[in-house]
């Protein structure tokens, strides 16, 4: 496999290293193995969901319901376990719930032909609402140790969820760059019509993408519940914006057709270490959001300076979109919840 980095990925690596250096100077705790490993626990949650999100955005879609779906699947799992089902069957059913929720998104988008942003904006509210209704307003606590290991355990010194994330990255990257469906996902993003006129089952691929997104969100929901030790309806609130921010920071274009998983992983890492490091450096939360927003905007602007081979024609149309998204993602009050969530568990 030839790994030739794009310009924007080099920008991201530079950004990652330089923010690492700055944060290490600001806080002596930041660059300790313990802290970095802990940071990856949070990174793994948004990082996992960011994998199918990248593919969805490349296909010119979006899934805003992922965080609600995380809460919904965790809630389903928690309630079943509370009513006496053994933990692992409960987890399995929870994951199935999230997968079905994702499938429902995909079905409405692909078959009923409602724009993804509308469908998932609706299910963002619906899934969260169902989770809240099911919970009756209280969280579920007291899960067995075997389950909590998913969020707090380690394998050979590496957090369990980080191992899952790395496996996910490998699978997703191979899928996106090596397989026919991966190729078609880029094609759908560039020109869905031409794919339909080539006899390609676009709807089936789109349905698959949102189903996969639901599955991974459910998985991340379990990991989240295991990490905080609670299944609660407000779990992962605002995560969807952190996830989309990481994907866009990683260079995926909301106009479709462009993006890489390498970029997304770098985007997730930068977002995480900034949140983690700035908190350790005692930078106020409001200031952190301003900084992260500025980094996002600056990074996306540099991508514009160097049109890449493949993106020549897409470049002019693709760039305004991420900038709009940047403004939206970072100015939204929901996003402070995402950062705050992490800060409550330093």
């Amino acid at each position: 496999m030839n790994i030739r980095l794009l310009w924007r990925e080099r920008v991201l690596i530079g950004l990652l290293i330089s923010s690492g250096v700055v944060l290490a100077l600001l806080s002596d705790v930041f660059l300790t193995p313990a802290n970095l490993l802990r940071a990856t626990r949070y990174a793994a949650e948004i990082g996992l969901v960011a994998l199918p999100m990248t593919m969805i955005i490349i296909s010119r879609g979006i899934d805003l319901s992922v965080a609600s779906n995380m809460a919904l699947s965790a809630m389903a799992m928690g309630l079943l376990w509370q009513r006496g089902l053994p933990i692992w069957p409960a987890v399995a059913i929870g994951v199935v719930t999230g997968t079905l929720a994702g499938w429902l998104n995909g079905w409405v988008i692909a078959r009923v032909r409602v724009p993804a942003i509308v469908v998932t904006l609706a299910t963002l509210a619906v899934y969260r609402g169902i989770a809240t209704g099911l919970s009756g307003g209280t969280g579920i606590l007291g899960f067995p140790e075997s389950f909590l290991a998913l969020g707090a355990g380690t394998v050979a010194g590496i957090p369990v969820q980080t191992v899952i994330w790395i496996a996910g990255i490998v699978i997703a990257a191979v899928f996106l760059t090596r397989t026919t469906n991966g190729r078609y996902i880029y094609g759908i993003g560039h020109n869905e019509t031409a794919l339909r006129f080539s006899g390609i089952a676009v709807d089936r691929i789109v349905l698959g993408l949102y189903t996969a997104s639901g599955f991974v969100a459910a998985l991340a929901g379990m990991i989240y519940a295991a990490r905080v030790g609670t299944a609660k309806s407000n779990a992962a609130a605002g995560y969807e914006l952190s996830i989309i921010t990481a994907v866009v920071l990683g260079g995926t274009s909301l106009a479709g057709g462009e993006g890489t998983l390498v970029g997304t992983v770098l985007g997730v890492l930068i977002l995480t270490i900034l949140q983690n490091g700035l908190t350790l450096a005692r930078v106020p939360a409001a200031m952190q959001d301003v900084l992260i927003g500025t980094v996002l905007l600056a990074a996306v602007l540099t991508y514009r300076e160097r049109p890449m081979r493949k993106e020549v024609s897409a470049q002019s149309t693709s760039q305004p979109a991420p900038r709009r998204a940047a403004g939206r993602a970072m100015s939204d009050p929901e996003n402070t919840l995402a950062a705050g969530e992490e800060r409550r568990k330093p």
Binding site: T180, N181, R183, G187, T193, K310, E311, S313
Partner: peptide, 29 residues
Amino acid sequence: QRQGLVLPFSVSENLSLVILRRLSRLGFI
């Protein structure tokens, strides 16, 4: 341009679009 081609795709990616499944094994191109 709208129905026939994926313009940003390379010539070879466009040429293989229709037969991509035949050019792959177990989904791998």
